Amino acid sequence: MKNSTSERKSQIEQIRKEAEALAFFVDKSPRNLPSFIKKLSENPRATRAALVDLLVQTHNPDYRGKPNVPGAWMNNVYKRYNCLDPNISDEVMHWLDSDATWQEIDETLRLEAEQRARPPAANNSGAQPLADTVSSRQAVAETTCDQAVKLTAVPLDINKTWMNEAEAHTLAQQIVLDGATHDYVITTEVAPDHAVWLVRINWDGNILAITSPAHWRSEFAEIYSMLQARLRIPA
């Protein structure tokens, strides 16, 4: 009986230590320590899955964006994983069943995110000036409203500062739709620029080269403001 009690105390102390480390890792403070103790006590696997989910969303965010409050995000997804047959994505499952520590997972995902955000090295051996590639019918794919709906959209990473061909086509489609929403006629064409791709837009005779979704959001805000200002000026 004494051994059983001693083992139980040791187990409780181990859970508390792990929960404290997890609290500082996630929240940088012990304020949610009781919550982490509860999670680790009732379902350690679901707790790890929730943490991996948090790290994946932090370094490779989907349409929901990066978690603003990591602890709150982890609490919400823990409820989803704390069931008999949870739906676990392949990426979370990969880390869930690994021997990697929290810190190792965090560092690996961070480095992968940095790698994705870095443009691939240009192949200078056969690179052509942008003007030449744009004039080439083989190198330029013009996107109209009718063509845009035929393209297969791919997720756009708002943190990237460059695009591959598929992402450029998706952004071109989005640009056309953004313009149509405000009754603006914007034509687009997707073109390579050495190792990356861009979207050239033509709005009311103004030609712009858009390099990323973030760049488009910035330019579109200026275009919208300019058009609104024109509407306020008497003819």
Rank of each mutant, 00 (worst) to 15 (best):
D53P: 01
L51T: 03
N32A: 13
V26M: 13
F25I: 12
P34Y: 04
E18R: 15
I37V: 11
N68P: 07
R31P: 00
N43L: 05
A50P: 08
V52M: 07
G65R: 08
A72D: 02
R16A: 13
G65I: 05
T47K: 10
E42V: 10
I15E: 11
W73D: 00
E18S: 15
K38P: 05
D53N: 03
P44V: 10
D27V: 04
I37E: 03
N32E: 13
S35H: 04
A21L: 14
L55W: 09
R45L: 08
V69C: 07
P34H: 05
S41D: 00
A46K: 05
A46P: 03
L54E: 02
R31V: 12
P34D: 02
P30M: 08
V26Y: 11
A19Q: 09
P70E: 03
K66V: 12
E20N: 01
R45H: 09
R45C: 04
L22K: 04
P61R: 00
A72Q: 04
L55K: 04
V69H: 10
N43H: 06
N32H: 14
V69E: 07
P67S: 09
S41E: 00
E18C: 15
K39D: 08
E18A: 14
L55Y: 07
N32L: 15
L40K: 04
E18T: 15
E18Q: 15
K66M: 13
Y63K: 03
G71I: 09
Q57F: 10
K39P: 12
E20V: 01
E18K: 15
N68S: 13
K38D: 05
N43C: 02
T58V: 11
R16T: 12
T47I: 10
E20S: 01
K28P: 00
Q57G: 01
V52Q: 05
A50C: 07
F36E: 12
E18L: 14
K17N: 15
V26H: 13
R64E: 00
A23H: 02
N68R: 11
L54C: 09
I15S: 11
A72E: 03
E18D: 15
F25A: 14
R48C: 05
P30S: 06
Y63V: 01
K39Q: 14
N60P: 04
K17C: 14
L51G: 01
F24H: 10
V56N: 09
P67K: 13
S35Q: 05
P61W: 00
L40C: 08
R16N: 14
K38N: 06
V56E: 08
P44L: 08
Q57D: 04
R45Y: 09
L55R: 02
W73H: 03
V52D: 02
P34R: 06
P30L: 08
P44T: 09
P44K: 09
S41Y: 08
F25T: 14
N60A: 07
L33A: 12
P44W: 14
K39L: 12
A50Q: 03
R45D: 03
D62T: 02
V26A: 12
R45Q: 07
E42Q: 10
L55I: 11
A49E: 09
P70I: 08
T47Y: 11
Q57L: 06
A50K: 06
I15N: 14
S41A: 01
A50D: 03
A46R: 06
P44H: 11
Y63H: 07
R31H: 13
K66S: 14
S41V: 01
